[in-house]
């Protein structure tokens, strides 16, 4: 509640000034990196991924409910193929951020390391650093160090095993000039987190020759979760492999989705409400 009397009002103003200096209060709107997929950008109030935020991308596992065991990230890549992170989308996002500014990119955790040729297509291989940190605490620490370095950075972080406190710390660290993409597996979709947006990417069957995914905005800070209209889109990898393009208007209205998919999205709509409540 604002204070009204003379000296106290001055104190109030000083507090606001300090807040401004510390970056807690800012006049300018945060910088936004459009995802490059127009209908998805339109669905986010900010118009894209905001700089200084944590954005969570969970892999959907094609409805394979049995694979619930967390895979330790030290284990070899060959064990990880069952629930890989949505790397193509992550590469697409890193690529579109890199076109807007020239950030350093850190891939923290073995499971987030993309293949060389996929990285080449995004055009950031020479500014990429790969950090091998098996434990969640180490990954968090590494992400914080990079985000707090005061440079333009994109941190792609293996977020498996991170709880609410850890994501909050990450969010605080990202507040400067960084942007963090937190990659998680399917079974962590319902863990509470402080991320600004939370997405779910699951593979989608196609009759074409290019991989397709359905991208779903599960949660976005500053908007009400609308259970009625699921925010899902189909995307397809571009012909030249440099990113993804949107191929469909929101799914789930019967245009392209199967009954099973609609079913699942409704279930997820509920879970996003739960996540919001707990956060």
């Amino acid at each position: 509640m604002p204070l009204t009397t003379g000296p106290l009002r001055r104190l109030d103003r000083i507090a606001e000034q300090i807040g401004r200096l510390e970056g807690v209060i800012s006049d300018s709107p945060p910088e936004v990196f459009p995802t490059g997929i127009a209908p998805i950008d339109a669905a986010i109030p900010a118009g894209g991924l905001i700089r200084g935020g944590v954005h969570e991308w969970c892999s959907g596992n094609g409805g394979d409910g049995g694979d619930r065991v967390a895979t330790p990230s030290r284990s070899r890549r060959s064990d990880l193929w069952r629930s890989p992170f949505p790397l193509t989308i992550a590469l697409h996002l890193v690529g579109s951020i890199a076109r807007a500014s020239a950030p350093f990119v850190c891939w923290i955790g073995r499971r987030t390391w993309p293949s060389c040729s996929a990285l080449l297509a995004t055009g950031v291989p020479e500014r990429s650093v790969f950090i091998d940190a098996p434990r969640a605490a180490e990954r968090l620490w590494a992400g914080e160090v990079v985000l707090r370095s005061g440079t333009d950075t994109v941190v792609v972080l293996d977020g498996s095993g991170m709880d609410l406190t850890m994501t909050r710390r990450l969010q605080l660290a990202a507040r400067g000039r960084g942007i963090a993409l937190l990659l998680r597996s399917d079974h962590e979709l319902n863990t509470p987190s402080a991320a600004s947006t939370r997405w779910r990417v699951s593979p989608m069957a196609t009759s074409g020759t290019h991989p397709r995914w359905s991208v779903e905005l599960v949660r976005c800070k500053g908007t009400q979760p609308t259970t009625g209209a699921p925010r899902r889109w189909g995307v397809e990898q571009k012909r030249d492999g440099t990113g993804v393009v949107c191929i469909s208007e929101p799914l789930g209205d019967g245009s392209g989705a199967t009954a099973d998919q609609t079913d699942r999205s409704e279930r997820l709509g509920d879970s996003s409400v739960q996540a919001r409540r707990s956060a």
Binding site: R76, R77, S78
Partner: peptide, 11 residues
């Protein structure tokens, strides 16, 4: 055109 994720050793 290569995949976005390669296994360290083929399985």
């Amino acid at each position: 055109w290569r995949p976005s994720m390669l296994l360290d050793t083929p399985r």
